[in-house]
């Protein structure tokens, strides 16, 4: 903070008060992060101390009222749904961004961008609602019960598509034109220029978009709660229902008490930690790349 004081030229009292107020309010941000971690850890402690660590993976199943806390099927459900949507969305999102930037004529590009922006803004509960009343009945026609991992993957993909598309597009804009012209001047075809020259340069931005999107897919609650069926089991196929960590919290928080409630905070803490890890890895990638190019 002493450094801060040196940066301020003016000595007026009003300014000093202003800086004081500003620093206090920005400390709120830092405090908020600390508090979120602190309280989740505090609330998780009862469950963490009551259970052996291995119990979270080896209990017969998840029946908190009977003292069984196996999170394994729920974790598998989360990974299957989030992973599936990331695998589907990444190529489509990158292709959409390439289309937007290199293939679409201007009016089409403007129109398509509006659609992507609208998709980004639609509330997740509306995606979930649409999935439940429109998409699930369609899936029932193919294979009951309809509420399934597949439904979750489809709706979640629609929801996270804009994230990767917009991230890729931003990265494409930043690719220097000189190298693009260089590629064309060597007689490379358009698709070679895109895949061999533009995409490698846009890679850090795209990777960071994928991380962002993975975080969103893991943390999304409403869509998976509404369309995935919420059955606690390791899904055998994508047509089986499954439950995710987030849906588990949303479903059981209303009636959970004591250790059960605390074990829900443990799942919350797991979510928080895994997503913070993604954020940190992403930062590391960015920095690493930055160091390599300079």
């Amino acid at each position: 903070m002493t450094l801060l004081r040196h940066n301020i030229l003016s000595k007026s009292v009003r300014d000093q008060v202003l800086v004081f107020v500003l620093i206090i309010s920005s400390l709120t941000t830092i405090a908020l992060v600390c508090f979120i971690f602190l309280f989740l850890i505090l609330e998780s402690l009862p469950a963490l101390s009551a259970n052996e660590f291995s119990q979270w993976l080896s209990d017969p199943s998840w029946h908190p009222t009977e003292g069984q806390y196996n999170l394994y099927p729920i974790m598998i459900g989360t990974l299957a749904i989030a992973g599936g949507s990331v695998i589907i969305t990444t190529p489509i999102g990158i292709a959409s961004a390439i289309f937007l930037h290199y293939y679409a004529p201007t009016p089409v590009a403007i129109f398509f961008r509006r659609i992507i922006e609208l998709l980004a803004g639609i509330p997740s509960v509306i995606y979930g609602f649409w999935g439940l009343v429109v998409l699930v009945p369609v899936i029932i026609q193919i294979a009951p019960p309809g509420q399934s991992v597949l439904a979750g993957i489809i709706v979640l993909s629609m929801m996270t598509l804009p994230i990767i598309t917009l991230a890729t597009e931003t990265a494409l804009i930043c690719v220097p034109h000189s190298t693009i012209y260089g590629g064309y001047a060597l007689g490379l075809s358009k698709i070679s220029v895109i895949t061999k020259i533009i995409l490698p340069q846009a890679k850090p931005g795209i990777v960071s978009g994928v991380f962002l999107q993975t975080g969103r897919a893991i943390g999304e609650t409403m869509v998976v709660l509404m369309v995935c069926g919420n059955v606690i089991q390791i899904p055998d196929s994508i047509l089986d229902p499954a439950r995710t960590l987030t849906a588990n919290i949303a479903l059981e928080m209303a009636y959970a008490t004591d250790i059960h409630r605390s074990s829900l905070f443990v799942t919350g803490l797991m979510l928080l930690l895994s997503i913070s890890c993604l954020t940190v890895i992403n930062e590391f990638f960015k920095k690493n790349h930055h160091a390599r190019t300079l």
């Binding site: 000189s178 190298t179 012209y181 001047a185 060597l186």
Partner: peptide, 11 residues
Amino acid sequence: GTIFQKPNPFP
């Protein structure tokens, strides 16, 4: 072949 004003090697 084309050589540009500013050297533009690919990264």
